[in-house]
Amino acid sequence: MGEVIVITSGKGGVGKTTTTANIGTGLAVSGKKVVLVDTDIGLRNLDVVMGLENRIVYDLVDVVEKTCRLKQALIKDKRYDGLYLLPAAQTRDKNSVKPEQMIELCDELRQEFDYIIIDCPAGIEQGFKNAIAGADRAIVVTTPEVSAVRDADRIIGLLESQEIRNPRLIVNRVRADMVKRGDMMSIEDIVDILAIGLIGVVPDDEQIIISTNKGEPAVTDNKSMAGQAYRNITKRIMGEDVPLMDLNTSDGFLSKMKRLFGIKPA
């Protein structure tokens, strides 16, 4: 039986879709059978982030309205074995799907897949309710900004009231240099405020924009810091114990050399 994980945040633009794409691809690369479900009806984007936008025939609304069979709507990613996408409808709105239909869909997908990763829309309205309806677990994405953390807090409260226990936190777009000089909230600050367990920290990385340009998730890029962070998160989702990575690798030449020779930076 597969597990349904919803990726949510409350605030828009913090990296839900990128996170969904990278976690999903990471799990597939690790040999799991994965389906990504885009529930952002009317504003679908997971297809372009995954580079699968030209292959859409049917979508989520077609499936719940039974215009097509589930199998017909699933897009197989030819680059990674065992990775599928169920795209959102672009010309409908969030009320086209009901929570009961999502629960039914998730139950059906559980039979086929190890992991069902749901990309949740921003906001706390119908789209959010649909996205979390069938979920077993939730991952809350935030960035180290007041607005994003505030919205994450609200989402954590709503997940709790929907009986989705133990949500896990991803802090995205962390800039180690800014944290160091006291101009960005640290991971500890954010965890302290939100009071939920951390599952990963993703550094702010130009490679994410480059990989999104190309439609190739950064998780498969060995040179990308964010890619490494997503690989770690993937392992933690599968139950492995992986330590948090050191974000300070973008320092100057000296500290790089020191690290090379095994001298701990001060």
């Binding site: 900004e145 007041v146 953390v149 505030r150 944290v179 000089r181 006291g182 101009d183 960005m184 909230m185 640290s186 600050d189 405020i193």
Partner: peptide, 13 residues
């Protein structure tokens, strides 16, 4: 530091 200001404001809100 600005992060302390952020933290304080967040806690209050």
């Amino acid at each position: 530091s600005s992060k302390d200001v952020a933290k304080e404001r967040l806690k209050l809100v």
